[in-house]
Design a protein around this nucleic acid. Structure first.
Length: 423
RNA sequence: GUGGGUGUAGCUCAGUGGUAGAGCACUGGAUUGUGGCUCCGGGGGCCGCGGGUUCAAACCCCGUCACUCACCCCA
C-alpha cells in the first residue's frame, strides 16, 4: 500500500507556492503600515483553552477538534483557530499589565476535523489579526479598514462584500438571546430540527439558518441592533460613520451572527459568491470579555481571520507565477562540465538564477530543457570554448548568440538581467 | 455524521461483454555543437480494491475504499 496524505490535508507544490509567498509579502507589508507586529504561537495548546473560549456547545469544540492525550498524560489540542492562543499568550506574557495596547498578527495552520469540500480543509491556513487594549470604535473601524485595504491591494475589492453587525455587550447579548429564544419558541413548529435544538443552546444561530422554512419563520424576528444599550448603539453608530469616512463600503446585516461564543459588539464578514458554499473569506469581531475570561486584567480586544486557501482560490492561478531561471548552462564533455559549474557559481554569486543538467545529455536535449523551463539565456560551453577559454552566450527569445570571454559573458548577462528586472 | 457525482498512463479523458487507447507531458532520433514548428520511435496501466455472474468483465451485479461537490459548520 502506498502511503497517502490524510483526508482534508494538502500538498502545496512548487506551482502553487509562489502565490503563498507573494500573499504573505502583501499581508505583512500592509499590516506593518498599520502598526501590527507578527507573533508566532504554538500549534498545540491545552484542550481547555479552546473549550472555555470558543464555547462548549459549538460544533468546533463538540466534534471537530484534534484532541488527544500525549505521553505525559496531558490532554492537548491542535489549535482550531488563532484568537484563543493569542489571548492566552497576551495574558501569559503579562501584556495586560505592562503593555495593554498591542497590535498583533499571525500566519499559520489551523486544524478542524470537518468533511472536506471546496475551500474547506482539515488543515487550513489563516492570517489572523488581534488588536488589544482599545475599547473605542476607532479600533473597530481601523481594523476593518485594514482588512479592506488588503483586499484592495490584492485586486479583490470588487469581488467581495463587507457585512457588519453588532451583537452588543454581554448584557445586550443575553437580553437579545432570551428575546429571540422566546420568539423562536412561539414558532417552534416551523423551525427545522437543528434550530429546535439551537433554541436551547444558542438561539442566535436560528437567524443564519439556511433552511427556507426557518428563514421564513424568522423573517420578522427582532433585530439585535434594536436591543442594544445606549452605549453600544453609540459605539456601532460611530464605527459606521468612521467606515463611511474612510470610503470602506459595507452593508449592515442584522442577521449575521458568529459561530464562536466570545464575540460581542461589532462583528463583520467578508463574503464572496465565487467559492460555492464556503462564502466567508474573512470574518471577525470584538471580544471585550475574553482577556479577563482567561485570567488577565480586563482588556478589550478585537480581531479577524482570513481563510488563505479561499483567498488563493479567489486570486486564481494567474496571480503569481513561478520564477524561471535566467541562465541555462549547456555543455558537452567532462572539461566543459567543470567550466560550466564554475561559471554557474560565478553567475549565482552575482544574483543570477541558473540551472544545469547533470547527466551528459546531447546539446539538443539541453536546449530543449532550457526552452521548457523558461530560461532567458543559454551559456554554451563546448570543445572550442574550452580550448579558447570562452563561452557562447545565446539569447533564447531572440535566437541570437555571440562568443565572449568569460568575464564579458558574465558582465553582459548580469547587466541585461538587472535591466529586465527593473522594467 | 448524511446525500449526489466520479475512480482507466504523470495530467485531461475516450473506451457498453471478445488481446487496454488518444491527446498532452516525459524520453531518443531525423548527416555526429543549438530550443520553440513538423515527422518517426520509446518508456510507461493488477482499468481504485475485494467478491460474484459468464466460455470470456475496464464494461453487468454486490460490497468496500478514495476523491469530489452539497447538507452541516465555518476562514
Amino acid at each position: 500500500m502506498k502511503v497517502k496524505k490524510l483526508k482534508g490535508f494538502r500538498d502545496v507544490l512548487p506551482e502553487e507556492s509562489p502565490a503563498w509567498i507573494k500573499l504573505e509579502q502583501v499581508v505583512s507589508q500592509i499590516f506593518t503600515r498599520y502598526g501590527f507586529a507578527q507573533v508566532r504561537l504554538p500549534l498545540l495548546e491545552q484542550s481547555t483553552l479552546f473549550s472555555r473560549t470558543i464555547g462548549e456547545a459549538t460544533d468546533i469544540v463538540e466534534k471537530e477538534m484534534y484532541t488527544f492525550v500525549d505521553t505525559g498524560g496531558e490532554q492537548i489540542t491542535l489549535r482550531p483557530e488563532g484568537t484563543a492562543s493569542a489571548v492566552r499568550a497576551f495574558v501569559e506574557n503579562g501584556f495586560d499589565r505592562s503593555n495593554p495596547k498591542a497590535r498583533w498578527y499571525y500566519i499559520g495552520s489551523m486544524f478542524r476535523r470537518e468533511r472536506p469540500q471546496k475551500g474547506r480543509f482539515r488543515q487550513f491556513n489563516q492570517v489572523g489579526v488581534e488588536c488589544f487594549g482599545w475599547k473605542a470604535p476607532g479600533a473597530d473601524a481601523d481594523v476593518i479598514t485594514m482588512l479592506w485595504d488588503l483586499f484592495t491591494a490584492l485586486g479583490l475589492s470588487g469581488r467581495v462584500s463587507l457585512e457588519i453587525n453588532s451583537l452588543g455587550c454581554a448584557d445586550d447579548r443575553k437580553a437579545y438571546s432570551d428575546k429571540l429564544a422566546k420568539y423562536g419558541a412561539e414558532r417552534i413548529d416551523k423551525l427545522c430540527d437543528n434550530c429546535k435544538k439551537r433554541l436551547g443552546k444558542n438561539p442566535l444561530r436560528i437567524l443564519d439558518c439556511k433552511s427556507p422554512s426557518c428563514q421564513e419563520a424568522t423573517a420578522d424576528a427582532p433585530s439585535p441592533v434594536d436591543s442594544l444599550c445606549d452605549e453600544c448603539t453609540e459605539h456601532f453608530s460611530t464605527v459606521r460613520i468612521l467606515l463611511d469616512d474612510q470610503g470602506v463600503p459595507f452593508k449592515v446585516n442584522p442577521r449575521m451572527v458568529r459561530g464562536l461564543d466570545y464575540y460581542s459588539r461589532t462583528t463583520f464578514e467578508l463574503l464572496t459568491t465565487e467559492l460555492g458554499a464556503q462564502n466567508a473569506v474573512a470574518a471577525g469581531g470584538r471580544y471585550d470579555a475574553l482577556v479577563e475570561q482567561l485570567g488577565g486584567r480586563p482588556t478589550p480586544g478585537l480581531g479577524f481571520a482570513i481563510g488563505l486557501e479561499r483567498l488563493i482560490l479567489l486570486l486564481g492561478d494567474e496571480w503569481a507565477s513561478a520564477d524561471t531561471p535566467d541562465v541555462y548552462m549547456v555543455y558537452t564533455g567532462a572539461e566543459a562540465f567543470l567550466m560550466a559549474m564554475r561559471l554557474r557559481r560565478l553567475l549565482m554569486l552575482r544574483s543570477t538564477t541558473t540551472t544545469i543538467d547533470f547527466e551528459q545529455r546531447s546539446m539538443k536535449a539541453q536546449f530543449k530543457s532550457a526552452n521548457t523551463c523558461g530560461a532567458k539565456w543559454a551559456m554554451v560551453i563546448g570543445e572550442s570554448e574550452v580550448e579558447k577559454g570562452e563561452v557562447t552566450v545565446k539569447n533564447l527569445a531572440e535566437s541570437q548568440q555571440q562568443t565572449l570571454s568569460i568575464n564579458n559573458a558574465i558582465e553582459l548577462v548580469s547587466t541585461k538581467i538587472i535591466a529586465s528586472d527593473e522594467e
